[in-house]
Simulated assay, not measured.
Amino acid sequence: MIIDAWGQHPTLRHSQDPVFDSLRRWTKEPAPEKAIPIETTLASLDQAGVDVMLTNAWYAPHNVLISNDEVAEFVTASNGKLLGIAGGDYAKPMDAIREISRAVTELGFKGVRIIPWLWEVPPTDRRFYPIYALCCELGVPFCTQIGHTGPLMPSEPGRPLYLDQVALDFPELKIVAGHIGYPWTEEAIAVATKHENVFIDTSAYTASRYPPELVRYMQGHGRHKIMFGTNYPMMTAAKALAGLDTLGLDDEAKALFLGGNAQRIFGIG
């Protein structure tokens, strides 16, 4: 099984939001004028042999780019290829708790994602702590971004070391840190090694661009800690997986990376 641990089937609001303008330097694509059809996303997954993509809701201050209900619609239309990751208005923690609880218990979502740079605060911010407690109660992972930001927003909230404190305060909480953590990849590996329930996904990077220290970790004692991700639609799965066979992963490490770890952590049958 191949599972993409970080993607989003975007709404047109999400695709056109100015916060992503800087990313177009890399994709060399203009802002779309029409929403991406669900068929395009599913075809992209099929092309790379991806069985499931975890697709995110996006809640930013004063703006909902992809709502939980829109994610639920995409999931329903995907015939099992998409699974939801919830979000909420973290400026209103009680509202966020109610909304995320609904998304998990009623809509069947598999986790919660908080993008700290959107809120310009680190993951240790007090507003997020009730969400972490809720994740523990619901038994779902907390997903986040680590490393510098492509959007022109502060990168400091993406320092992996902030997750050390979160993991100390919530040892039961499963934390999935996306985007490798560059330029602090060694820091991310140190936090994942220290804490049983901290994991890393490789979204936003092609296999040929994984830092050497991450590849060594995947080959050895970190093989149960790293999972595949794309950050679709910024990157397709086919592009993200190009060069995978050059990494020197044995069969066990490759299977865990491509799907086994995500299957276990997110409870995907």
Rank of each mutant, 00 (worst) to 15 (best):
Q165A: 14
G139R: 10
W119F: 02
E120R: 15
D169M: 13
P123A: 03
S155R: 07
I115D: 11
P151D: 10
G158H: 01
P123Q: 03
G147H: 10
V166S: 00
E156V: 11
V104M: 06
D164R: 10
L152N: 15
F109Q: 06
H148P: 13
V112K: 00
P151I: 04
G150R: 05
W117S: 14
G158K: 05
H148D: 15
I146G: 06
R159T: 06
Y132K: 13
W117N: 13
E137C: 09
P122K: 09
E120M: 13
W117R: 11
K110S: 03
R102C: 08
V140S: 02
D164N: 14
L152M: 15
P151A: 11
E156K: 12
L152P: 12
F142V: 07
Q165I: 12
P116V: 01
P130W: 08
W119I: 04
P141S: 06
P154C: 06
T105L: 10
I146M: 08
T105A: 11
L161K: 11
H148R: 15
R127K: 01
V140M: 05
T124A: 00
A167N: 07
D164C: 09
R126M: 14
T144K: 00
Q165F: 13
Y132E: 08
A103W: 01
K110N: 08
Q165S: 12
Y162Q: 00
G139P: 08
H148Y: 14
V104N: 01
I114Q: 02
P141H: 06
V121D: 00
C135W: 01
E120I: 13
G147E: 11
P130H: 08
E106H: 05
C136Q: 13
Y129K: 15
P123C: 02
C143F: 04
P116W: 05
G111R: 05
G150W: 14
L107Y: 04
I115F: 09
L138G: 05
